[in-house]
Amino acid sequence: MSLVARNALIALALTIVLTATVVYAVAYLNNARMAELATIEDQISIDTLSLETQFSLLASAPCDSAASSTVLSGELADLGTRLAYAENQLGSDNPQVMRLKYRYSLLEIRDYLLTKQFASACRTKPTAVLYFYSNSGDCPDCDNAGYALSYLRDTYPTLRVYSFDYHLNLGALKTLIAVNKVKDTLPAFIIDGKVSYGFSSLADLEKRFPKGALATSTSLSGR
């Protein structure tokens, strides 16, 4: 075998090994990312359960644990951001992403229900948005709506935003959609118990909130 042919073959083998190493490294990092998400989800799951238990135990004075619920919502929002990033990187058809998304949606629903329970028991009026989106290409305004909600959440930290993939095949989510009679005209929002559809501008979205709901929240608009 000539020197050139020998070098060319060794180089090919080396290239394949290097490329395989890169593929492995990317897969390893993505798996680590998924594992991190799963750990966060587990922690939130435990925290939610703990809060629910606390709520039951302190039936006479449930409002004592209200602060924990707020912290939990913040963690949930962070998890949502991470999950959205992972979905964007790995694709909506990634089974691991989908599994985590199911769990995340369940946690969101549980947190939403818990928030409602606290609100009822403690006579508070937390502002919450249930936001239904789609990544299946049937919601051209969802990216805009998602960014506007991120802005609102960052500007008004007490605002609770629960995002749901409308097409997610999850029983609890289907029930939530059915109970609230949310149609598949996306994006859809449930604000203060009222369902609304479409997104045209931030100003239009803000108008759907009860009067003073955003203004009475802790505003960070001056930052």
Binding site: I10, A11, T15
Partner: peptide, 16 residues
């Protein structure tokens, strides 16, 4: 992939 291959070829040739 071709760029990596070319560089691998140069590397192997350098060591030959």
């Amino acid at each position: 992939f071709i760029a990596v291959y070319f560089e691998a070829f140069v590397l192997v040739t350098l060591l030959s």
